[in-house]
Simulated assay, not measured.
Amino acid sequence: MSKGESKSGQEPSPVTEPEGEPVRVLLAEDNVIASELISMMAKRLGCRVDTVSNGLDAIDLIYRAQQLDKAYDLLLLDAMMPVLTGSETARRLRAEGIDSSQLPIIAVTAATDPAEVREYLRAGMQGYLSKPVSLAEFSACIDAWAPGRSKKPHRGRRTPSDALRRRYDLRKIEVLERFETAVTAGHLAPGIATELREHLHKLAGTAGSFGETDLSVAASQGESLLEGAAPDGLRGAISRSLDLLKAVA
């Protein structure tokens, strides 16, 4: 049997790409590593993806795209972002008349507690993707919310690049150092609890994508500790969070 023949003796059919316009995705995510990971998935599925780092920029880009007759098919919103959070962004878009038939909105979040999920839905979102986002879940999301658009089939897992892995490893070191500095400081700086919670939220969202599930869980636990800490117990909460991270990092 020659190399180009199938077992039936016929030439194999060529692989064809889906017809139609590709899915246009807008991702609002302030975590650079998470943004690159999700963008890689979107591009692998044949989507056109634009990225911004906050909700206000997302709103601006949505209206600019509409004016150019290149409206987005799907908006992915990180739950915790500067300027406007994911829920605040969704509420503003819905209040301005952009409904779910025009633009489905999906939360991308490490926080999937039922109460938080209800908050996403009340804000006008249609669902959520839990971090770390898998290629299969992302593919299913596109099938569900942009069914009339073109998408390449999902053909297995793609691992992050070595360069992205190195950046992630450096980010882990920076987070640990920031916690150690806070623990040993003579006094806690104003806003330190918010800053450290944001570090943990981002770490929880990306650690699982690199196969470090235990670290993702530890970061989420630390985030909860800091969120519930009273002012006089904040240093202890920071110290316990650091211990959780060190145990698995």
Rank of each mutant, 00 (worst) to 15 (best):
R165P: 00
R157K: 13
H199N: 08
L176A: 06
R166K: 14
K172H: 01
E174C: 06
Y168L: 03
A182K: 04
H201V: 14
S216Y: 04
D169S: 05
T184P: 02
R167H: 01
L164A: 06
T159W: 10
G208I: 13
G148P: 01
A182E: 00
H199E: 03
S150P: 10
A182L: 05
R158A: 11
K202I: 02
A204W: 04
H199Y: 02
I173T: 07
V183M: 12
V175L: 09
F210Q: 03
R167T: 01
P160I: 02
A189G: 07
V175P: 01
D162S: 08
R155P: 11
L164Q: 05
E177D: 10
E212V: 11
V175F: 04
S150I: 14
L188C: 07
G156D: 13
G205T: 03
P153W: 12
L196D: 01
K172T: 02
R165K: 11
A204T: 15
L203T: 05
L188G: 09
R149C: 06
L200M: 05
S150A: 15
H199V: 00
R165T: 06
V175C: 07
A189Q: 15
L164F: 05
L200D: 00
H154V: 04
G211K: 10
L188F: 08
P160T: 13
A204I: 13
T159G: 10
T159S: 15
R171N: 08
A218R: 00
H201D: 11
L176E: 02
